[in-house]
Each structure stands twice: as C-alpha cells, then as structure tokens.
Amino acid sequence: MELGPYLILASLEGAITAAVLALTAVGLSLVFGVMRVVNIAHGEFFMLGAVIAWWITGMIGGPPAVGFGVALIVAPLMVGAIAVLADMTILKRLDYDPERTIVATIGLLYIIQQLTLMSYGPDAHPVTAPFNTRLAIPWVAHGEGGWTLIWPWGLGTTSYKLAVIGAAVVVLLGVWLMMARTKIGLLMRATQQDRDMALAFGIPVERIYALVFGMGAALAALAAVLIVPIQQAHYLMGGDPLLLSFIVVIIGGLGSLPGTVVAAVLIGLSDGIISVFFSPTLAKILATLLVALVLIFRPQGLFGARGR
C-alpha cells in the first residue's frame, strides 16, 4: 500500500496531540494573557489531572465509563482548587511580579512533582477508556479495475481517540464563548487590557486573577484526563506538555487565544506526522527551531499584537 493511508493515520495521531495540546496551551495562554504570569508549574497541573483521574477511577470502580465520567469533572475542579490556593497563598503575596512569579512557579513545580512521587509512586498507571471500539479507516485505491474501496485495511483508530478530539473542540468553543459573550469573560478581558483601570472601575482584580489561574490549571488537568486512557499517568509526565505549550504559546502570540489554538494544531499535527515517519525527537527539534525562527522574525508571534 502506498503512503496515503499512513499519512491519514499520522494526521489522526497528530490531531489527538493537537487537541490535548490546544487545551493545555490555552490554559497557559489565558494565565499569561490576563495575569502576565509565566506559569512554569503548568505541566504539573496537567500531571495532577492524570494522577487524580487514575485515583478517582480506581476508587469508584464499576464500569469504566462511570469512573471516567466522574474523573472528567472532579479532577479539573480539584486541580483548579489547588491552583486557586497557590494563587492566593503565593502569587498574590509576590504582587504578581513577573520575575518573582517565575521563580515561585518553578518551586511549585518541584513541590507538586515530589509530593506526587511520595504519595503516588514512581510507576505509570493506566486508566481504562470509557469506550474503545476499534474503527477501521476506509481507503480508496486505484487498482486494475479502477477505483476500489479498501476497508478494512488493517490499521485503524479507536472511537475514544475521535471522542478526545471532539471533546477538545467543544471545550475550546466553550472557553471562547465564555471570553467573548459572558460578563465574567468581559471582566477578564478588561483586566488583561489594563489592570489599574480595571481596579478604577470596580473590577475585583485579585478575584479575577485567582479565577483565571484556577481555570488555566483546570484546562491542563482536563486535557490530561482526556489523554490518560491513551498515555498512562506518571509523575514526570508534565514535562512534555509544558515544553510544547510554551512552544505553542510563543508561536501563536503571547496571550492570544486564537493564535494559541492555531499554533497547537500546527505543532500537534506536524509532531504526529514527523513522529510517525521519522522520530519524535526530530519533531521536538523542529518545533523548537520554529520557536527560534518566530522569535527572530516575528517576536510578537503569529497572532500577537505588536508593542503592548
């Protein structure tokens, strides 16, 4: 069989990476955009989401769909609550100073990581997918007798993988609707534009910050819950999402949500395709190279506004 089917398969794998990455990176982008805080601990919130999902599904038992459904809602809420706590006890006391919050979130990264190692342990644990029907992908080939449909042709995907992509799209639409259409979204955008004027017009900026930090972490956790049936939970799993999220946020333009989503699709798809045909390491090298190029030729990112 020729290249085509493998390309489709690679694109599908890439689309899953892109979906999860978009959720994680939008969380990071939201926090940076509104609060100007570079959250190095973002990957650990992702990891916590996966670990808590494993813990919840193990505790509830029963059919996988029930435990997973609970985890999908409870894990992001718990991680969000932890992030709100971190905001109120650490970031707020640093006055959201850009440099000091970087150091503080590095500290937070190690605290979360080591606490997880001490309680959860060094092993990777799987979470059973709520549904996992194998789906074969149809392919059309031009043979001797004209066009023929080849189906099934061995390789395929699963219904769960498609559901991950669908869920990510729905959540991203939800985030966009919240930012664009709701009162709380308006308050967030105003705070993002001018913190002092937000205060001068009665916006409780500290509460908005706590909410945004919690939401950013919850989005990372949600992405992790979605991916954990495919990838397994591990206390060091936060590294890659953090690196890729930063790559995506820089390419998309710091603080620009549409840019973040577009860049996530770009990086996710190319990561999937390059990983399948060459190697995952090459994919990371190329993505990092792209960041370097963007920083040199378009420092504000593809969708960022210049000179704020």
């Binding site: 308006l186 955008r189 105003a190 534009q193 001018d194 002092d196 004027m197 937000a198 205060l199 001068a200 017009f201 009665g202 916006i203 409780p204 900026v205 500290e206």
Partner: peptide
C-alpha cells in the same frame, strides 16, 4: 478600602491619556 471598592462608593475617574480598554468595543 481595597482599590476596587473605591469606584463602587461613587467615584468616577477619567485618567490622563484616557486609558480605555482598547481592544473592547464602545459598548463593552
């Protein structure tokens, strides 16, 4: 009071250089 409570008591501020929420519409 915390800063965000001051305008709520009834003080309107028109700052130097206007300081509008630039990316937001007039309505917003």
């Amino acid at each position: 009071l915390p800063a965000h409570e001051v305008p709520r008591r009834g003080i309107g501020y028109i700052p130097q250089g206007r300081r509008l929420f630039n990316g937001l519409t007039v309505a917003e």
